[in-house]
Design a protein around this nucleic acid. Structure first.
Lengths: 150, 150
DNA sequence: TCTAGATTATTGCATTTGCAACTATTGTCA
DNA sequence: TGACAATAGTTGCAAATGCAATAATCTAGA
């Protein structure tokens, strides 16, 4: 029998919102949002990325990301370039300052995660991650919001 | 070694956003948001609730919820009453129409959850829920955003 | 080559959101 | 009791968000 408060989507959202709230507060003094941090950490991981790829990875609308990256660029934390061999895409990279900031913040993320999963075994955490990945891949990406075939 | 795309907060957000997107689309034709659905489903579960309790449960700001419940009330899906013995609080209840709508939508939520966890065993799903609950309780509620002690 | 279509990002606009300030009511304790 | 603090909800305002429309570039086929 269905109960909202025992459903996976609900529990997922509740945990996700709370962990994001806590992290948001920790990075607020650097005037960063969680999405901004994810962009930085992603670039640290991949060295460079297009806007569209970043949007996929960070799970935000590309229009939102466009403005967000604009803000980061204004603060000299990332650079934006249109390659000469492809004038459509925008390549986003960390600046040295962006990299330094990211390196400073990553330990906070590590600590937060440790707090969140403090009473779980390594196996439990691994199973959790696996489940989260599975759910993601079990559901369709909603790129073109509406109508399936037009 | 830390990798954003292997971290729990990131995976949590990614799965949560995607599942919410899918559900949002399914209920869009009834002009409901996911938060609205959660309010309705919560009231179906608890029969009645104050605004503050709803905000906790649904994981949204009380100011947001105040307006959201206002919208639901305008559509006659919920009622708002200030009890005579306590003029501060607002009691929110489902109207018959709200209840009917909720009953119609709940199967969609069930089906969505089934899709999300389709390749997991009952034990795995139970472990997932447990982990999500633990993480939630391992982290502090951020009611008074800033400074811990003033 | 030239044109139609697809891809990628940006911008306009309306909606949503969150914080802070405010109102109203209740609780406390001197 | 009376005043001050605490609780609950609403509203103003600015910032963030998403969708739709647009701009710019690339791709493919006649």
């Amino acid at each position: 029998m269905y109960k909202l408060t025992d459903s996976v989507p609900y529990l997922l959202n509740r945990a996700g919102v709370r962990i994001a709230e806590v992290f948001a507060q920790r990075i607020a003094e650097d005037n960063l949002s969680v999405a901004m941090y994810r962009v930085l950490a992603m670039l640290k991981e991949r060295r460079e990325s297009t806007l569209g790829d970043l949007a996929d990875v960070v799970s935000v609308e590309i229009s939102t990301l466009s403005r967000l990256v604009g803000t980061l660029a204004k603060r000299k934390l990332v650079s934006r370039t249109r390659p000469e061999d492809n004038g459509r895409i925008v390549i986003v990279r960390l600046t040295p300052q962006g990299e330094a900031l990211t390196e400073r913040l990553m330990p906070l993320a590590v600590e937060l995660e440790r707090t969140a999963v403090q009473d779980m075994s390594d196996e439990e955490v691994a199973a959790l991650k696996k489940a989260l990945r599975r759910m993601h891949s079990n559901l369709p990406a909603m790129s073109g919001k509406g109508k399936v075939a037009g």
